[in-house]
Structures are given as C-alpha cells and as structure tokens.
Design a protein around this nucleic acid. Structure first.
Length: 267
DNA sequence: TTCCAGGAGCATC
DNA sequence: GATGCTCATGGA
C-alpha cells in the first residue's frame, strides 16, 4: 500500500544524519527497519499492507512539525533559512538497540563509512528479508552479537570500535543495560545508563536519546554543531548546552537537526 | 603526507 | 571537573 499523508521530505529526513539504513535507489529511497522494508518517494511510503501501522509509528505521523517550526523560528530568527532549506526533516522513531550500535560506530567517523560498516554488520549477522523481489538484511540482535569475538568483526573494518560493539551486545543481552527500562526512565537517568556501555559517551548517548527514545529536548554536540554555534552564534563550547536549552527548550534536538543539515551542506 | 570524520577512554592534574 | 594524548580506517 501507499501512505500519502505524512508531512516530510525524503532527502531532508534521510540525509540529515539521523539514520544510516536509507539509500537512494532507482525507485526512490529504500529503507530497512526491524524486519521490514519500504520505499519512500518524496513523502509517499510504499510498504506491505500489514506494515502500515509500523511505518506510521516509525515516521511519528502524529507529531505536528508545522507548530514546532513556528515556535523555533519565533525564538530564533536565524533558524529561518535552515528550515527553508531542510524543513522536511522529521525525527524518526528508530530501534533503540540499532541506535546504540549505530552511534557507537559513528564516533570519530564519517557518514559513508558508518553506513558501510553497518551494512556489512547486517549482511553478516542479520536475517535476510525478501521485499518486492529484492533481498535485504535485518539489524542483528544483541543476543547474536554477544556470542561473537573481536576476530568475527574484523572484516567490518570498524577499527577500535569492535570491542565497543561487543561490550554493548553483552551488556544488553545480559540485561545489565535494560532496553525496556530505558524507554520509561527520566532522560538524565537514561543517559547515565547508556553511558555504562563502552563507546557511549555524552554525544553518542544524546543521539540515542533523540533518535530512538524521542527526547526532543536533548542537543547532541558534535564537531559540526560546536563549530556552528561558535561561528554563527558566538557561543563557546562550554556554554552550548545552556544556550540550546534556553533558546530552543523542549525542541532543542529538532533545532539541532535543522542547523546540522543546513550548515553541513552550506559550509 | 597530513588532516578529518555526527567522539570516547584513559591518565594526569 | 578540565586537559591532552591516543585510538582504526579511508577519503580528500
């Protein structure tokens, strides 16, 4: 079936750095989440009938970005060109475990390499999915990865992140890091819990909170954002968190995406 | 050759 | 709590 009523733009949503398993094909973007696949052309989602509810949740169809964008621009006029450029961004509701591993891999890395490593991880240890005559792979479970050794990951070329991936898998599979409990924890406590995993520092934890746990107030600070806030707003690195909270409040994370997407593409 | 990428761990103070 | 060094990999 085709879902037509979602308010987003594919290129903005899939190229803003929040997701790593959406790729441009000759039929628009194709994406994998859980054990499902769909195509996205502009803002039309082409999926199996029985998966419609899943994808509506994935795109968080009920969140009204019109109101959010108005609020953000009213508090920061400098966001206007960013929203004009990337106003079709939606923060996706992605799988918690997948975000933990994906953003561990993202550390000190670039997006094409991150995507390549994740794809190899899925092809190696995920389950095959057939969709419209093509084969895809699900994201491997923590249980599957927890049984591996570093040598099993060498072909991913993830470098020193191998042991972080295994540490995350072991802590999640054993229940030491409880994914279900994380979903209902206050943001501060959830962040502390996530940072018990090796390879999850402040920035990676913030990305997990924003892109899976829907804590829209968190403001991940990567090299780009620090640079933007210094150059455009003259805010020092140590003052970024306070600045973001004061300026953008409960939607700071969404503002962060507009800033990141605009200034990354416009030097 | 050196620098950089959606940083984090660790030692040291 | 802050600072500085190091950590694989590959493209520019």
């Amino acid at each position: 079936m085709i879902i037509k009523d979602l308010d987003f733009e594919s290129v903005h949503t899939f190229e803003c750095g929040q997701c790593f398993r959406w790729n441009l094909s000759d039929r628009g973007y194709v994406g994998v989440a859980a054990d499902k696949v769909c195509f996205a052309e502009n803002n039309n989602i082409i999926c199996n009938d029985e998966d419609a509810d899943f994808w509506r949740d994935y795109f968080r169809g009920e969140v009204d970005y019109g109101d959010i964008k108005k609020m953000l621009v009213s508090s920061d006029k400098k966001l206007a060109p960013c929203i004009k450029y990337g106003g079709g961004i939606r923060i996706l509701h992605q799988d918690l475990w997948e975000m933990i591993i994906s953003f561990i891999i993202s550390a000190n890395n670039n997006i094409p390499r991150i995507k390549g490593i994740i794809e190899k991880l899925c092809e190696s240890f995920g389950e095959p999915i057939e969709f419209q005559g093509e084969r895809f792979y699900s994201f491997p479970t923590a249980e599957r990865l927890s049984g591996l050794k570093q040598a099993d990951l060498a072909h991913l070329k993830a470098g020193y992140r191998d042991r972080y991936i295994l540490d995350a898998a072991q802590k999640v599979a054993s229940g030491e890091v409880d994914l279900e409990a994380l979903k209902n924890m206050p943001t501060v406590d959830a962040k502390k819990m996530l940072m018990r995993i090796c390879g999850v520092g402040s920035k990676v934890a913030d990305c997990i909170l924003l892109f899976s746990l829907e804590r829209y107030e968190v403001f991940p600070q990567d090299v780009w954002i620090k640079r933007i806030l210094k150059d455009v707003y003259n805010v020092d690195e140590k003052d970024v968190a306070v600045f973001a909270a004061d300026m953008y409040g409960e939607y700071a994370g969404i503002a962060q995406q507009y800033l990141y997407y605009y200034y990354r593409d416009n030097k």
